[in-house]
C-alpha cells in the first residue's frame, strides 16, 4: 500500500467542529473524513455524505433469509420428513411464523454487520491507520487527503482550519 499523506485539524469541541465542517464545505473544499470520539448529530448532512445503503442491504438480507427459510421448512415438513404434530396438517403456516420471524431478524442483522464492515473497509486482517489516537478520547479531527495538494493549497486549508477554531494543524504520512 502506498503511503498516504494527510493534513488534519484538531478541535476541542463538537459544536465548533460541526460549524467548521459546514463552513469548509460551503467554500467547496472536499473533506476526506472526520474523526470524533462519539457520534455527532447532523454531521452526515454537514459533510454532504450520500445516505447510506445499509438499510436496503438489511431489507434484502431479511427478505432472502425469510424466503429461503420458508422453502426449507416447507420442504422438510412436507417432503423430506413429514411428521404429525398435534393433529395439524404437514404444512402448518402459523407454526412457521415464529421461526420465520427469528430468521428474518438474524439474517438481516448478520448481513448488516458484514455489509457494515465491507462498506468501511474493515476486516480482521487489514488494519486502518489511526491518524491521531486522541480522536478516540477528547479531540475532534477533520482530515484532508494531502497527496495531490500543492503547498499553496495546503496553506489555504490550514488557514481555513485555523479561522474555524482548530487548536492545532498537523501533517502526517500514514
Amino acid at each position: 500500500m502506498a503511503k498516504k499523506k494527510v493534513l488534519y485539524g484538531v478541535f476541542n469541541d463538537d459544536h465548533v467542529l460541526l460549524d467548521a465542517v459546514r463552513n469548509i464545505r460551503a467554500q467547496g473544499v472536499r473533506i476526506q473524513e472526520v474523526f470524533t470520539p462519539f457520534p455527532i448529530h447532523g454531521i452526515d448532512e454537514a459533510m454532504e455524505h450520500r445516505p447510506t445503503g445499509l438499510h436496503t442491504a438489511g431489507f434484502v438480507f431479511g427478505l432472502v433469509g425469510v424466503s429461503l427459510m420458508f422453502l426449507y421448512m416447507t420442504w422438510i415438513n412436507t417432503v423430506n420428513y413429514p411428521l404429525i404434530f398435534g393433529g395439524k396438517p404437514f404444512f402448518s403456516f402459523p407454526a412457521f411464523i415464529p421461526i420465520l420471524f427469528e430468521v428474518t431478524v438474524l439474517s438481516a442483522a448478520v448481513g448488516m454487520v458484514v455489509v457494515y464492515f465491507v462498506l468501511n473497509g474493515l476486516s480482521p486482517i487489514r488494519q486502518k491507520p489511526v491518524i491521531d489516537p486522541r480522536s478516540s478520547d477528547d479531540k475532534f479531527i477533520i482530515a484532508f487527503s494531502a497527496d495531490e495538494l500543492s503547498e499553496e493549497e495546503k496553506h489555504e486549508i490550514s488557514n481555513m482550519l485555523h479561522e474555524n477554531g482548530a487548536t492545532e494543524i498537523n501533517e502526517k504520512v500514514l
Binding site: 398435534g86 393433529g87 402459523p94 407454526a95 411464523i97 415464529p98
Partner: peptide, 12 residues
C-alpha cells in the same frame, strides 16, 4: 395479535 392467535391455534 399473533401470539394470542398462535397459542389458541396450537392448543386447539
Amino acid at each position: 395479535w399473533f401470539s394470542q392467535y398462535m397459542l389458541i391455534w396450537y392448543g386447539n
